[in-house]
Write a protein that binds this DNA or RNA. Sequence first.
DNA 1: CTGAAAGCGCTTACAG
DNA 2: CTGAAAGCGCTTACAG
Lengths: 335, 335
Amino acid sequence: MNPTIKDVAKKANVSIATVSRILNEQKGYSAKTKERVMEAINELGYQPNAVARGLINKRTQTIGILFPDVSSMFSADILKGIEEVAHNRGHSIVVCHTGESGNRMMEYLQLLNEKRVDGIIFTSAVITEAYYKTLKEMKIPVVLVATQSYRFPLPYVKVDDKHAAYSAVSYLIQKGHRKIGMISGDMADKIAGRPRVEGYKQALEDHGISFDEKKLVVTPGFSFENGSGMLQKLLKQERDITAVFAASDELAVSAMSDAFEMGIHVPEELSIIGYDNLKVAEMSIPPLTTLAQPLYEMGKLSAELLLDMLVTGETVESRIIPHNIIERKTVKKVN
Amino acid sequence: MNPTIKDVAKKANVSIATVSRILNEQKGYSAKTKERVMEAINELGYQPNAVARGLINKRTQTIGILFPDVSSMFSADILKGIEEVAHNRGHSIVVCHTGESGNRMMEYLQLLNEKRVDGIIFTSAVITEAYYKTLKEMKIPVVLVATQSYRFPLPYVKVDDKHAAYSAVSYLIQKGHRKIGMISGDMADKIAGRPRVEGYKQALEDHGISFDEKKLVVTPGFSFENGSGMLQKLLKQERDITAVFAASDELAVSAMSDAFEMGIHVPEELSIIGYDNLKVAEMSIPPLTTLAQPLYEMGKLSAELLLDMLVTGETVESRIIPHNIIERKTVKKVN
DNA sequence: CTGAAAGCGCTTACAG
DNA sequence: CTGAAAGCGCTTACAG
């Protein structure tokens, strides 16, 4: 068995109270008893039991992170950012894959409660009433990343999706494009779906281009698989397009694959701009121009905010993160 | 504060012992006391405190997972597989990003020990003497995924790298290629580096093709960045090549980007086969033919084995996982 | 500077 | 079928 505080106390000939004090760098012991205790600790290879500490301190030094899909490229950088600051600030992270079933979500929420995590980071999904209710009952800080809630007062860190989409489309327009199609994710999605379409429309409008619904194509999600065949569909509806804005990088890459199949050259014959700036954006051929969400930084910031809430006990302001365009090689200037 | 077992005991007018029994589905209570207790639990919204349970049971129902890079595509599927079975079997996972610094690794090992995780899954890195020593002192089950140790007796689940590389190169040969180059990762890496080169050499030899070191190019890692420019280098050393075996998908995709830059058409002018079958393999243009490691299944299996060890208390046999080739579109038949 | 004791929220013999 | 009590490994007043 692992040695306990009792073992070191015995070995050092002091009470467990003073061992505890030394461990926690409080005061109330002489230099030489400290020395004796440290010696005993080293000899025994003693490591404090964080479970016992957690029980009494009511702090487990761990935070829970909820992902709809832990293995997506989208989650990857957020996770890394969170891990980075959590670790630096003495916390570990338990990661939860909630999938699409609300079931799994509720299971995990309950689990995180039983495990008494100190806080929760909730990524890119929508907060339902049930989720909010249990979250609230847990009475621990929560921060949202890459999502937000209109109904419930939870701090979030995210990009302004409408604005970002607006920027992406405006960029295309600046490059001389006026016949711009869009491949959208689920329009019923109020966080990442509709706002991007609205941004697209607004950019057109502000530049005197009228919206044409034949230039818009919708698929139920944002994944590579969802995007398959969408470019064909778009071009079938409306042959006369010089550029397309895809609502995610995976959708964009999917469109590039479709273009390749159809023998359409990107960007010579068709410009494409994505959204996200996933790792795959640099790996695509040619490299994808895209609207970047700084996912890694968003992860870091969300963890910072959460841990701040933990120390101050106060809630924190939401943060709209600036987006920007990463120019690579899929958008061509046109007259 | 969260209600405790004491609160429900009081409310139901029983002792905490019987509440505990009911919670743990043991026997020793009447149907109607159970009913009363369940009622109290519901009314209070009581959730057992897993920290207290962990302290007394000496089981935290959590396992630690160590990744050199949590955010890599390689980690993604392994993580998902582990999460899947861990969750199904009532365990949560704390994920650790160890980076390249051995430092971070030791920190995390200590942390996992203090948190008293029930077991550890160690992925795709090499076990040093120091790691092994601390792992051993923790006296908990460990399983290795996508790596192994020759020096230390730790069960692993992985593909046979040499054999897999052999298969990939043999596939190229079957397709009629005889002038086959290789882009290798770090040759000093005894797990994923050298064995793949050995497999390459052996496949050549067994097919009566002599190895030519001008057809081999080495880069310090397996990432997309590491691969940049390697195809140029290879072709400069030896122009006369019809196919290349890349030691990872990222390296392969990198080579495809290089080929694109150089105006070389894949697979018409040059065939490429990768290794791993990451998500990016299907997304590349054209889709990448590759030697697949079933990462998701390997993740699942490693968790199964770890949890089995936890229940049986016995160590478990290592598993060599079968690999296979996913034929997509980057390898062309040749005469 | 130091220790005895209570307590965190549970589980588990032990006794009835 | 049920409860009182000890104990898991710590921290923290409290008292000296």
